[in-house]
Design a protein around this nucleic acid. Structure first.
Lengths: 338, 338
DNA sequence: GTGAAAGCGCTAACAT
DNA sequence: ATGTTAGCGCTTTCAC
């Protein structure tokens, strides 16, 4: 009743050699009906489960996908991980989530290394472009996909949204509503996505002949509290913006909160649009206009790419960018009459 | 530049035997200064990292805590995992999150088994009371802690909140505001927590001499959409409740949403109180009154218990129940004059 | 101070 | 149809 049992024990009870027991359990080679039954019975009796560690050490598949996350705090990360988990499950893989700010820290490298061996393939979520571990992956040609990454070209497939184009669409929505003084709340620069979104913001303004003003571009670290603080900065300006484009939904929530705290109304006085469309976006008040990320499709694509590599396809550079959809809800409205 | 390098390669370059290289790298036995330096240089040159899989197969510690999650969809789970991750990190452990609805499924058992071997200890988050894997853990005396579980007595430590008492406090808050017709939205019964919260709800009503009405007790599976649907049921009643107690915040969001959709106001016409106090609770409008779970403390406690067991303390039944704090925000107010 | 042997649990390849 | 050998990468005896 104590520790887990091993194959040799099962074999002994069944009166066969370990390898025969192994064959019987995996239904692999030739095993007589009689022997097979004795083995299976013994296994059941001992509650035997094969040691995947040992199997994996021999190089067998583990049917496990590792998801490396470096910003577990964020809600999008949660949603993405959920989507990947579902997709993986559908095709017979389980996922293991490993969480660290960086993967190249001193004590962390062996763990990453171990997990990369344990898992058949890896998905790196929002990896930091400067993380040294990215190079390890590229160098060792480990089957891997980067998810939501826009920092630079890499030699593995990258699944992401069309950050720049989508940001532009968000801002064009605001411009279409008559807004002329539009602020941008950016996130941290680690994955390169915020930078692209900022470019899209500038693209839209430029196309409409509007100036790109430094005082209207603030930073909120992709977190709600950061969005709140960034918005307070904006609300302290001489001339307030009439609309805010936040580089993710969580910062948009913070922005709305800050605006309400000042006794102003959304969208009557200031419109707010987010980015990502996490589930909460439709549950808050006012419901949040935002750009929707096709997470399920992206997750499916990432998993498919990964499994292809696991099954032998070469690891190659490949950019899979998904378009986003504008979701208009109640946080954006016509610009107030000046 | 290809695959990861192994100890024997390092040893060959350094001109020593593998075991000497091993000693040098771990700084363990006697190694001459000269040999040590050559080994370290060779290791650096080859980018060598020890294979934890192989180490672990020999029974060494991995400094890894496994977090088994069976309802990854929920936001509380995300918060709890984050808290545990932080605590673990503080004392030199990393965490690995494994996500499955159940852990006793056919293909899943070997993976669970493997992870339980790979990790020094396990935290089971919101485990399903009927999951057969719980018994495996109890039987094999694997160092483990159950987190947010209230289904039955088990032979491992359990870290949870005082579900029944806290639920009672939430409802007493509503009663104190003059509410007499109070509804309850429960979650799924898997962890036993919803049941305890429902008992607390009934306790409070009974203590105030109020009837416990079946039509006021509905089910929302702990998810926002479920809370929405459950509230629609309540809003279809002949006589509406003036307050709703939801067994978690996400269902409370759904409830507020449903109420708004009917053109009613929170809390003017119907008060809503949640349970957990996830971060979004203070960002929505109206801000959500709820019961706060002392997550950081709970996580610290769980990790401490676990590490004690990893370090040799016996695995024993132990109930660690934390009190919750009432957080009054803007979603609860005086009962409307009948 | 260093190395050889043995073994963690499993299975492919090669016998028999 | 079954068993033997060998080896995945590492480290704990036990020798020298």
């Amino acid at each position: 009743m104590g520790k887990a049992s091993k194959l040799s024990e099962v074999a002994k009870i069944a009166g066969v050699s370990p390898i025969t027991a192994s064959r019987a359990i995996r239904g692999n080679g030739y095993v007589s009906e009689a022997a097979r039954e004795r083995v299976l019975a013994a296994a059941a009796q001992l509650n035997y489960t094969p040691d995947m560690l040992a199997r994996r050490m021999r190089g067998d598949k583990s049917k496990l996908i590792g998801v490396f996350v470096n910003n577990y705090g964020s809600l999008v990360v949660h949603e993405i991980a959920k989507a990947i988990s579902q997709e993986a499950r559908n095709i017979g893989y389980d996922i293991l989530i490993f969480n660290a700010e960086r993967f190249d820290g001193p004590g962390r490298a062996p763990t990453c290394d171990m997990l990369s061996k344990l898992c058949d393939g890896l998905v790196l979520l929002l990896p930091n472009g400067e993380d040294g571990y990215l190079e390890v992956i590229e160098r060792q040609r480990i089957p891997a996909v980067f998810f939501s990454f826009d920092a630079r070209d890499v030699s593995v497939p990258v699944v992401a949204v069309e950050n720049r184009e989508a940001a532009r669409a968000a801002v064009e929505h605001l411009i279409g509503l008559g807004h002329r003084r539009i602020a941008f709340i950016g996130g941290s620069r680690a994955t390169g996505q915020s930078g692209q979104r900022q470019k899209g913001y500038a693209d839209a303004l430029a196309a409409a002949g509007l100036p790109v003003l430094p005082e209207l571009m603030v930073e909120g670290r992709f977190v709600q509290a950061g969005g709140y603080a960034a918005t307070e900065q904006l609300l302290a300006l001489e001339q307030l913006p009439t609309a805010i484009f936040a580089a993710n939904d969580e910062m948009a929530f913070g922005a709305i909160d800050a605006i309400h705290s000042r006794g102003l109304e959304v969208p009557a006085q200031i419109s707010v649009i987010g980015f990502d469309d996490i589930p909460t976006a439709s549950g808050v008040f006012p419901t949040l206009s935002t750009m929707r990320q096709p997470l399920a499709q992206m997750a499916a694509c990432a998993v498919d790419e990964l499994v292809a590599m696991i099954d032998g396809a070469p690891v190659a550079s490949k950019k899979l960018a998904f378009p986003m959809e504008l979701v208009v809800r109640n946080s954006t409205g016509p610009a107030p009459a000046a």
